[in-house]
Amino acid sequence: MFYPNSPQTSPQLTQIPYGQQYAMMQRQIQQPYHPFATTEPQARLYPYHYQGPIQQEQGGFITQQSTAASPQYVQMRVTPVDQSIMSGYPNQTANGSSSSSFNYNIHPQQQQQQQQQQQQLRHHAMPVGSVPLQDDRYRKQLIVNYLAPDVTSTDLHELFSRFGELDGARIIYDKQTNMSKGYGFVYFCHAEDAKEAVERMSGYEFHGKWLKVGYSTNPLNIVPSNSSPYVHAGSRGAAG
């Protein structure tokens, strides 16, 4: 039997160049792979992502010199942007860049009308829970959420009447099932009393439920100042 490094198959040491006398086997001759043993700084910083320098080929596509990437890492192929796409944008300079302001050559009167329309939209648009300043009635009506099913309009009136005089209180019921929808409205005579009720009743436990109280901004629920107070009856038909 002959071994790869046996004296019968191995040459004389004098015939082997210096430095390879003890590297006779194939696994010894093959050098191990060192990912950080390279002179390129990109490979030292990113050993798993770097795959060699990027070269520009004919046709405008950018390719990489090395083989496919590892399945664990996804390499994105980048193509140059066609400058003709950006030619339609206004205020574009000769080098292809555009300024931040756009001039669509709008007539001054049209621009003024658009600004007025935007101001009107901001004036009428009102986020949930906010209180408008032009109508004091919005500051007097509250919406009470997360009410228990057994709470009546009379219970709601008695709960909030300790903060001040009320114009009314009612629970909203479903017309088909005649069941409470879980929320109601309270109408105060003074805005200061309503503000105190919002601050003190939010998070209050009532009939096993934690109440959420806020201003009601729905104009359909506003009680006119010259109208008669609501009837605080315990029956659902009268309260709904």
Rank of each mutant, 00 (worst) to 15 (best):
S66F: 07
P149Q: 07
I54Q: 00
G203C: 04
T9I: 05
A191L: 03
Q42Y: 05
Q56T: 11
E165T: 11
G237I: 07
S100E: 06
P47Q: 09
Q12D: 10
Q176A: 10
G184P: 15
S6C: 10
G237K: 09
Q92D: 15
E158Y: 01
P41R: 03
R170W: 07
Y183P: 07
N103Y: 14
T79N: 03
K181C: 05
Q111S: 14
V213C: 04
Q141T: 01
H123N: 15
E199L: 13
G203K: 03
Q72Y: 15
L133F: 05
N178M: 10
G237T: 06
Y183W: 01
Y18C: 07
P32C: 09
L159F: 00
F163R: 07
R170T: 12
I29C: 00
Q111N: 12
V186C: 04
Q111M: 15
F188T: 13
M179Q: 10
P17F: 15
D150L: 07
I171Y: 13
Y146G: 03
E158F: 08
T93L: 06
Y33H: 14
Q15I: 15
K140N: 15
G88Y: 14
Q114P: 09
T63L: 14
F2D: 08
Q56A: 15
A69V: 14
G237E: 13
H207I: 08
Q21Y: 06
E196V: 04
I222S: 11
L159P: 14
Q65E: 13
Q120D: 05
D82L: 12
V74T: 01
D193L: 02
D155T: 04
Q65Y: 13
G19S: 05
H124K: 02
D193A: 10
Q117H: 08
Y22F: 12
D136R: 03
H34K: 03
Y22W: 14
S161N: 00
G168D: 04
R44S: 07
Y204S: 04
Y22V: 04
A125K: 02
Y230E: 13
F36D: 04
H107Y: 02
N105K: 11
V213T: 06
Y183V: 03
S99L: 13
Y50D: 06
V144R: 08
V131K: 09
G234R: 11
D155Y: 06
P229F: 04
H190A: 05
P71Y: 07
S84Y: 12
G240M: 14
A169P: 13
S84L: 07
Q92M: 08
G237H: 07
R200V: 09
V186L: 08
Q119S: 12
G240Q: 07
A125H: 07
L142P: 03
D167P: 09
P17A: 05
A125T: 04
H157L: 02
A239P: 10
Q28G: 03
E199K: 10
Q116G: 08
Y3E: 02
S101T: 06
L147D: 04
A238K: 14
L159S: 04
H207D: 00
Y138H: 05
Y33W: 15
P219A: 03
Q20Y: 00
G234W: 12
I171L: 06
N103R: 04
N5A: 13
P71V: 10
D193C: 02
M76L: 13
A148W: 00
M126V: 06
I29D: 14
E196P: 08
A169C: 14
Q109N: 04
Q176R: 11
A148C: 10
Q21T: 08
Y215M: 02
Q75I: 15
Q28I: 08
S6G: 12
Q92K: 11
S97I: 07
L45R: 02
D155C: 02
Y104R: 11
H49Q: 13
T93E: 15
I222M: 03
Q31H: 10
K175S: 08
F2N: 14
P219C: 07
Q83M: 15
R122D: 03
Y138N: 13
Q21F: 09
T217S: 03
R200A: 15
T152M: 14
A194F: 11
E199T: 08
